[in-house]
């Protein structure tokens, strides 16, 4: 999947996880930038990310996956096996 498509899927995933309209989720959205993406919201995002993409995210990554671009990089690295 190319980065553009991945980004769109992540935007949809974040909107669903945080229960906000897709229009409230720009492609660069990060933790803390909208009220719904607070600590509890972040853990919901991580759990939905695991579910949607069939991942088992290491606890050490939770503090790094704090924006859509960071998640995009992480998923692309996973696909590329690095």
């Amino acid at each position: 999947m190319d980065r553009q498509n991945l980004q769109v899927r992540l935007q949809e995933m974040v909107a669903d996880a945080l229960q906000v309209p897709a229009s409230d989720v720009p492609e660069t959205l990060a933790f803390g930038e909208i009220p719904q993406w607070d600590s509890m919201g972040h853990m919901t995002v991580i759990m939905v990310l695991e579910e949607r993409f069939g991942l088992d995210i290491d606890a050490g990554m939770i503090a790094s996956l704090t924006s859509i671009p960071a998640m995009c990089d992480y998923l692309q690295d996973k696909v590329n096996g690095s």
């Binding site: 600590s39 509890m40 853990m43 991580i46 759990m47 606890a59 050490g60 990554m61 939770i62 503090a63």
Partner: peptide, 14 residues
Amino acid sequence: GEFRKQTAFQSAFQ
């Protein structure tokens, strides 16, 4: 109810 998410967040962000 809050345990799993909150503890994971606290732990991840130290």
